[in-house]
Computed example of a mutant assay.
Amino acid sequence: MPFDPLPARLETDRLVMTPEAADDAVWLARLFTARGAGVVSTAEAEDRIVAMQRVVAEHGIGARVLRAKPGREPLGYCAIIVGRGSLAEPELAYELLPEARGMGYATEGSRALLDAVFRTGRSRIWSTVRAWNGPSLRVLDSLGFVRDRVTQDAQGELVWLVATAAARGPV
């Protein structure tokens, strides 16, 4: 079953959400570096942006940069990706710059993106989170995700959560 693409632009009360562009590389490199797994260069971030642009063009899903209104400074991203899911049942992912955490932006942006992805005709969306990541688990709970299972990999416990269009109601 083919799915409609996600809209290029989404807007909430506090956010404007648009696809990644080349000029996002500097702040994305800072965000990826903040993960603590090593320094990510601007050139590496540019490569990731190009790869995401291909995903958006080919599959109609992908990342949306969260920009705060009114100045539109970047805060992070929310994305619908294949990840550990599939094109029919993709995965919600989000990540914020350290200074943007704890203010509800992940919840607000993810809610708008979930509404949009369910309007594409999909009925189930996944998210996977490390068991130690309490803030992300709380965001997903507030969005209506429910635990499906817990698996183990080389990095430890991975919690699988799912949200369904039926449980969310009309969007």
Rank of each mutant, 00 (worst) to 15 (best):
L6F: 11
S86Y: 02
D115H: 12
A21C: 13
L6N: 07
R119V: 06
L87M: 13
E73D: 15
R64S: 13
I81Y: 10
T107H: 13
E157G: 10
A22D: 03
Q152H: 06
L114K: 01
A166C: 01
W132K: 13
L96F: 08
W126S: 13
T42K: 10
E99D: 14
R14A: 14
S110I: 06
L113Y: 04
A79Q: 05
T33M: 07
A112N: 08
A21Y: 05
G169F: 00
A167G: 10
P170L: 10
N133M: 06
P5A: 07
W132R: 13
S142P: 05
V159R: 04
R168Q: 11
R101E: 14
A93C: 07
V56C: 10
L15E: 04
L66K: 03
D13Y: 00
S142M: 05
A167L: 08
G109E: 01
V65E: 05
G38E: 10
A37F: 13
R30D: 14
Y105L: 04
T164D: 07
A8S: 15
V39P: 02
A131V: 08
D141N: 12
R138W: 09
Q152W: 01
V117N: 03
K69L: 10
A37T: 15
R119I: 01
R72I: 02
E44Q: 14
V129I: 15
L143Q: 09
P98L: 02
G144Y: 03
A88N: 06
A37H: 15
E20Q: 14
A165H: 12
D23M: 05
D4M: 06
G60H: 04
G85I: 07
R9N: 01
G36S: 11
G38D: 06
L75E: 12
V129Y: 09
E95W: 00
R147V: 13
G134I: 07
A45Y: 08
E89M: 04
A88F: 08
L15I: 09
Q155R: 12
Y94E: 02
G121P: 04
F32D: 11
L140F: 09
T128Y: 05
G62N: 01
I49K: 02
R101Q: 14
G76D: 08
D153P: 00
I125A: 04
P135Q: 03
L143G: 02
P74W: 00
R35D: 08
L92Q: 09
T33Q: 02
V117F: 01
E91K: 11
V159F: 08
A106F: 11
L66S: 04
T107C: 14
A166K: 06
W126H: 15
A34D: 15
G38M: 11
G60T: 06
